[in-house]
Amino acid sequence: MLVLTMMTYAIGKLGYSGLNMIFLLLVTVIIKGVIIIREYMELRGVSFLWRAIMYGWLWVVTIAIAIAYMLSL
């Protein structure tokens, strides 16, 4: 998690932009989000409905952000 955070920070500091960077950053968000939902919130093994809501939130938000950024390029 900390490494992914430092990577995100480095991308920002170095001023990288463009579609590839947007996807890389959003993949990082998803990885960190999945870790928080599965391990931190301990939703691993919980009934499908609750996991679907949490993972659904993460995917819908990141996909919506990706679409908005693609439209802006």
Partner: peptide, 13 residues
């Protein structure tokens, strides 16, 4: 979890 999305969205992307 919210900050994990907010930080890259507002500060980086």
């Amino acid at each position: 979890l919210v900050w994990i999305v907010l930080f890259p969205l507002v500060y980086i992307i």
